[in-house]
Design a protein around this nucleic acid. Structure first.
Lengths: 226, 226
DNA sequence: GCGGCGGACTGATCTAGATCAGGACAAAGG
DNA sequence: CCTTTGTCCTGATCTAGATCAGTCCGCCGC
């Protein structure tokens, strides 16, 4: 980044806030003025249906934006719930727009973040639409692994994962009963073990092949930034 | 829009191109330099899995961007196939970036388009994950209806729809056999009729209730543009 | 005028995963 | 200490939707 860009970044009001696990920070239908950058902890964005079911769209890990789309669309089409206690820094729309105007390249960076977000949602869509339970589960965990590795919170050997089987069920579109069975299946196949909040991967390459996992949508650096 | 913005828009190289139905214009894995705006006809963006199955992520109708995300991420994570013969105008990355630098508000507009795109994909995800076949079908057709109405190609009474039941099956994650049965079901319930390339809606409000269709994610105008 | 083909449509059968109905265990709270 | 709560885990049964195996019809090319 150039000095000018860094100066603009520094000028942003960086108010830190914390939220406790389980208490939503953004509600579906709410129109909000601020987005956040997640500094520590995990969160999830989800949608509720009229009949009370919920679909978790994605989990957010440190470094991810929270509620960026809500700000652009002026209304939130989803809710965001901290999975663990979290720490965030607030980003005001006005500041963001200001920064865009001053340094277009910064706009491009955020643009890229939104696009990567969309690419992940698309990948989830494909998973739920076309992969069976085991492949979907494997793909889901591999994606988390890759994302966590990028921010230094995991490796191909495994990662700490605060998700309950209920949360995973809501994310991959299965019942929690079936999530449990699928995890057992993957363990019995020697692929991975998920126990006590830790995912241990025994056979990374086998898992990648099994899940047809294509990492490219995650690790690209926006070419427009080079 | 201001005069300055319009001048920038006019300065873009607006090369018209046409593509015939069925021949992909963007291939998964291809890195491309141009995005398009669809002027006439329908297209679809889809992903292929290793085992040959495909998931259609979304259909594009006149006015929609094609391949915008591919440009930002530098590589296309999906393919795009014209459903009918289509007409597009090409938009070069360099031009787009140039335009962004000159008029940040234009960047914001494109930003909004990407966000709306993502909101639609999220809605599809929820549909496939949590709605049963009939609700999903109803929701899918209502979304198309709403989008087509926005560009004057349909109304609450119905719209012309060039999609085959096979294409719909690939989009909503059902078998074509089941798509057929679900359409019959919706017809027998008096909700709508899909025949000879026309969707005729008999009971719009009933359908909206049945599908739990929430239109807000589509018709918002980006507040940042006001 | 007739084969070939793509799309709509249908009945019979099969299966992945849901749902139901619990038990085991650990942590939290009185 | 016992009770409650949350999470993991399991077997038995049920069902939405897939799959298989076609028919029918209109259109195109020869």
């Amino acid at each position: 980044m150039t000095d000018a860009e860094l100066r603009v970044l520094d000028s942003l009001d960086k108010r830190r806030r914390t939220f406790v696990a389980g208490r939503d920070l953004v509600h579906q239908g709410q129109s909000n003025q601020a987005a956040y950058i997640l500094m520590s902890g995990w969160a999830c964005s989800y949608k509720l249906l009229a009949d009370g079911q919920r679909q978790i769209v994605d989990f957010q890990i440190p470094g991810d934006f929270l509620g960026l789309r809500s700000v652009v669309l002026h209304i939130s089409d989803h809710s965001i719930e901290p999975v663990t206690d979290i720490e965030v820094t607030e980003v005001h729309v006005s500041d963001l727009m200001e920064a865009f105007a001053q340094t277009p390249r910064l706009a491009t960076a955020v643009f890229w973040a939104v696009s990567r977000d969309e690419a992940m949602v698309v990948e989830h869509l494909v998973g739920i639409g076309r992969r069976d339970a085991a492949e979907r589960m494997a793909h889901f965990l591999l994606e988390l692994c890759a994302r966590l590795s990028l921010v230094g919170l995991g490796s191909k050997a495994g990662f700490a994962c605060p998700l309950t089987q209920y949360l995973i069920a809501d994310a991959v579109g299965l019942s929690s009963v079936h999530v449990n069975r699928v995890l057992r299946h993957l363990r019995e196949q020697g692929f991975l073990t998920f126990r006590n909040g830790f995912v241990t991967i025994h056979d990374y390459d086998g898992l990648v092949r099994f899940a047809d996992f294509e990492i490219s949508y995650l690790d690209q650096i926006g070419p427009l930034l080079r």
